[in-house]
């Protein structure tokens, strides 16, 4: 920290940055903030749980998708490859709208869905948001996991087989843990990307941080202040994600030359 601050130009830049922040607080209009603060907190919470839930679910889906491509027979590898290509080749906004408007217009046509106990949940927007974000993360991470499974040294797998390890134990104890360790640094960046994708679900009426900010804009006609607050909130969440993953990476024993 002290080494970071030692150069004279950094101190000047920091003072200039602080002055800019002070000017923003002083000169811009923040009178709306107390009234909307509780709503903002709810929005931030929605962003956090959407990111966390879809990351975990997406990773769970990505492991079989990657493994099928790395070591599976062709009738599993090809569909997995096609899924990853389609997800990575089309905009997420289009996928979200396809799932929300498409499935949302399809489901009510079946009486047995409308009468089921799940209907009150399916009538809301968030299940479609979770589904779209999960599939998207799975598509991108399936590709990453494919590389990770392939990069586990053959000697490790052969040694396990030579010890007479059953195939499932081999996967659980040797193949998967080593692949997961390899992708941890990549996952950190990908999870930040996933967090950055969450504001898109505001377009299908899910109330998260971005939706709250646009409501402030509509109610009060104040444009910049909510957007600036949004940028700061997302910067902070991104920093937290990077720190959490750095903690996980530290838990992995590494040997550096």
């Amino acid at each position: 920290m002290i080494a970071f601050l030692r150069p004279r130009h950094r101190q000047v830049l920091l003072v200039a940055g602080a002055a800019l922040v002070a000017w923003c607080i002083h000169a811009l209009d923040w009178s709306w903030l107390p009234a909307y603060w509780p709503l903002f907190l709810r929005g931030i919470w929605a962003t956090v749980w959407l990111t966390a839930l879809t990351t975990v679910l997406g990773l769970v889906l990505a492991i079989p998708l990657g493994f099928a491509q790395a070591a599976g027979p062709w009738f599993l590898a090809w569909p997995a490859l096609a899924f990853c290509t389609i997800i990575r080749g089309t905009p997420l906004l289009l996928q979200i709208w396809l799932i929300y408007y498409g499935l949302g217009s399809l489901f009510p046509q079946f009486p047995w869905i409308r009468q089921s106990d799940l209907w009150p949940i399916l009538r809301q927007a968030w299940p479609y948001a979770v589904l779209a974000l999960t599939l998207s993360y799975a598509g991108y991470e399936g590709e990453v996991m494919r590389g990770a499974f392939k990069s586990v040294p053959r000697g490790q797998l052969e040694a396990a087989r030579a010890m007479g390890m059953p195939r499932l134990t081999l996967f659980r104890r040797i193949w998967l843990p080593q692949a997961l360790r390899k992708v941890l640094p990549t996952l950190s960046g990908e999870t930040v990307l996933q967090m950055k994708a969450t504001p898109l679900v505001a377009t299908i009426t899910v109330v998260e941080t971005y939706a709250v900010a646009s409501r402030v804009r509509q109610d009060t006609f104040i444009v910049y202040e909510p957007l600036l607050l949004l940028a700061v909130v997302y910067l902070a969440i991104a920093a937290v994600i990077v720190l959490v993953f750095r903690h996980f990476e530290r838990m992995v024993p590494t040997r550096t030359a």
Binding site: K196, P199, A231
Partner: peptide, 9 residues
């Protein structure tokens, strides 16, 4: 900053 803030915002 550009890489940490969502593109939409």
């Amino acid at each position: 900053v550009v890489r940490a803030v969502p593109e939409l915002i």
